[in-house]
Simulated assay, not measured.
Amino acid sequence: MRRTPRSSLPVALLTALAVTAVGGCDWGGGGDGRQDTTPPAAPRGLTVEAGSATTAHVMWNQATDDTGVTGYEVYRDAKRVRTVPGAKHMVDIVGLRPATTYAFTVRARDAEGNVSADSKKLTVTTPKAVAADREAPSRPADLRGRAEGSRSAMLTWGKSTDDRRVASYEIYQGGSKIHSVGGGQTATLVTGLRPGTAYTFTVKARDAADNFSPASRKVRLTTGAGEDAGRGTAPTGFRATTHRADGAYYIDLSWVPPRTGGAVAEYQIQLDGRTATSLVFGGTAPRDKAEHSFYIGKKSGERHRVRIRPKLPDGTWGGYSPTREVTTG
C-alpha cells in the first residue's frame, strides 16, 4: 500500500525562497557618479491585528537595502495611508469602518527614492461597532514575565472583563506601545530584545469603542547575558527520520511548537545548510505536536542534515531547532 506523507494539516507548501544576493552598487557620491537604482528588499514578517472597531495595528520586519532603508509606506487596499521612518516597524491605522475587511501591504523606500516590491498582503476584519459604549475594560490582572534566553521574553496576564467584549490587549515597553494581540489571547512572546538588559512591561485592555483599561501592574525582567541564538523561541523535541514509498524517499519531521502565547502557523525548513521550503499550516495550527513529511529523492544511502525554525506571531523568525542527520534507505 502506498504510504503518503504524514502531513495532513498543511494546506500550502511553498516553494523554496530564493536567496537574493545584493551586490555592491554604485550610488550618488560614488567614484563614478552613478546613482543608486537598486530598490530595497520587500518587507517580510507582516502582521495585522484589529485593535478596535476603527483601528488596526500593522507590524513588519526591517527590510534590507544596499544603502539603507529610510522609510516605509503602508498601503490599505492599494492606497497609501501612512509613511513612517526607516527606524520604525509598526503603526496604528485609524479611521477604519467597523465590521469591514481591509487588506494591508508595506513597501520600503531608500534615500534615492527606490521603492521595494510589496510585502505579502494580509487582511483583517474590524469588530462591529457598539453604540454609546463609554465603559472601559477592567485592568489586566497578575501580569507576569520571564526572560526566554537573551533576546525574548514571555508575558502572561489575567483576562480583562468588559460590558461588551475586549477587542485587543496592547503591550507597552516602558511608555511605548510595542505590540498588540487579540482579545482572546492572554500571553505573548516579545522578541527583538537585547542581551543582559533590564526591561519594564505593562499591558492595557482595549474594547471595540477604543476605551482603554488602566495599565496592568509593571513587570520587570532582565534578559540573559549571553548569545543563545534564540533557543527560547525554537521548536523542541525535534526528530527526523526517513521512509520509502513507491520508489521514493521522504523525510519525516516531528516537533513541539514553541510557546508564544499564540499558534505558530508557519515554519521554515533548512536542508543541508540551505532553505528548502516554507511550511504553512491551514485551519488550526498544532500547539502540542506538529508533524510534516516531504519528498527528498530516489537514491538510497544519501545523507542529509535538516532543521526548522518558526515564524513567531509578531512576524519575526524564531530560533532554529537542533540539526538532525538522516540517511535514506
Rank of each mutant, 00 (worst) to 15 (best):
R259M: 10
A229T: 11
P214I: 02
T67N: 09
P214H: 01
G273F: 07
L155K: 01
S7P: 01
V84K: 06
D142C: 01
A136E: 04
G45N: 01
K159A: 15
A208P: 06
A263G: 09
T223D: 03
V256H: 11
R144C: 00
R307Y: 12
K204F: 00
G29P: 12
R244S: 12
K128Y: 00
G183L: 07
A50F: 00
Q270I: 11
T277D: 12
G232N: 10
E325H: 07
L155N: 07
I308V: 15
R164S: 15
T188M: 04
Y102E: 14
S150F: 02
K218H: 05
R165F: 13
A285I: 02
T328G: 05
R146I: 13
R151T: 13
R107C: 11
T328V: 12
E148W: 08
S180I: 09
D92Q: 13
T105G: 08
D118V: 02
T275Y: 03
R134K: 12
T260E: 06
D207Q: 04
P85A: 13
A63Y: 02
K311N: 15
R134Q: 12
A99T: 10
K88V: 15
V19F: 02
T241D: 14
K79S: 12
L13A: 14
P214V: 03
P322G: 04
D118C: 02
D65Y: 01
W157T: 09
G329N: 10
R231F: 00
T260D: 08
T15H: 14
L221I: 11
E266W: 00
P98M: 06
D133R: 05
A167D: 13
L13Q: 15
V81Y: 03
L143F: 02
S52I: 02
D252H: 00
P40A: 00
R324Q: 14
A63M: 03
A229F: 11
C25Q: 15
L9Q: 07
A18G: 15
V74Y: 06
P98H: 10
P257I: 04
L155W: 05
H304K: 08
D65E: 01
T236S: 14
E112R: 10
I296K: 00
S160M: 03
V58P: 06
D252V: 01
T241L: 00
R274F: 11
A229S: 11
A263K: 13
M90V: 02
G184C: 08
M59P: 00
S116G: 10
W27I: 09
V69S: 11
I269Q: 13
G183V: 04
Q185D: 13
P140E: 06
A234G: 06
T327L: 03
R324M: 14
T15M: 10
D288G: 12
G51H: 02
V130Q: 13
S7Y: 06
R303D: 07
T55Q: 15
G175K: 12
P40N: 00
G31C: 11
T241F: 00
R217E: 15
E112L: 09
P235N: 05
R34W: 02
C25P: 11
R80H: 07
V58E: 04
P195L: 01
R244E: 15
P257Y: 04
A285E: 12
L189S: 06
A56T: 11
G174E: 09
H304Q: 02
P322A: 04
D110K: 12
A240D: 08
Q185T: 15
